[in-house]
Amino acid sequence: MLSRDADSLYWLSRYVERAENTARILDVAYRMASMPISYNGVETNEWESALITAGGVDQFRAVYGDATPENVIEFLAFSEANPSSIQNCFDTARQNARSVRSALTSEMWEAINSAWLDLRRYKARSIKVEDLPRFLNLVKEASLRYDGSALRTMLRNDAYWFSRLGLYIERADNTARVLDVKYHVLLPQDAAVGGGIDYYQWAAILRSVSALVSYQWVYHQNLRPWLVADLLILREEMPRSLAACYAFLSRHLDDISQRYGTSGLAQRQARATHARLTNRSIEDIFQDGLHEFLQDFLAENNRLGQAISTQYLG
């Protein structure tokens, strides 16, 4: 297929996924911020950590001053100064969708187009903090509908595989960043002293990747920080875990190389990262340092994105 079309599909999926991730991050900040201070620790500013997780702290500082709820919501949901704001994500997604209309099924196009029309009704500064859940729900539903229609209506060919690659690269990046921003509350010494306060922080991490209920089904026990990390890093049955993302990345890259009859750097990198995720235990990772592990992973994931671009989308 045309490289430009593959590129558009790849970024279309990345931007839809990014919008959903940002919506989840805002959702968690909203929940945490509405808790009494004694439950979430004195020094945390949940809106600030939302900003750090979603990225773009520097851009934020350049335009706004304090990380007040209103400022952060505007920046992450609406701001034109933030290329990854939810509204910018959907603008970019729709532009990409329009340029590959013929590679999309009509269901996918309608999912993107109607979400874009719905979201345009919300405007910066006019949204109140208490309207936020409804807005965020709309974003999550739009992403689910897009993803579901891709899954159910697309031919299983390179167009499908490139759109999946975008989704999993973005999702892996997000899960790793959610963990990294909160890694300190997962460390064992904090767990020892944390008690009840940290419980809500762990729950928040799970909730931001919609894994709170899954946790119970997988482990059948109370929240333990190392199990939270295990679930989100190593468990392939958890669809947002790093291991699951890499299982899919490596499978779809293999699909492409089989179809094209050649393979390259992207395939080798994905396979290597996937192998490292399946051969480790969570104890090893804590031993070597969770933060270091996550930083390495983010850099690797970024390199894979570049390898895919150079190999196919250039």
Partner: peptide, 15 residues
């Protein structure tokens, strides 16, 4: 921009 010409042949850039 998807097309280019080399040695008086037209090509498209594909994956």
């Amino acid at each position: 921009r998807d097309l280019f010409v080399r040695d008086e042949m037209v090509y498209m850039r594909t994956t």
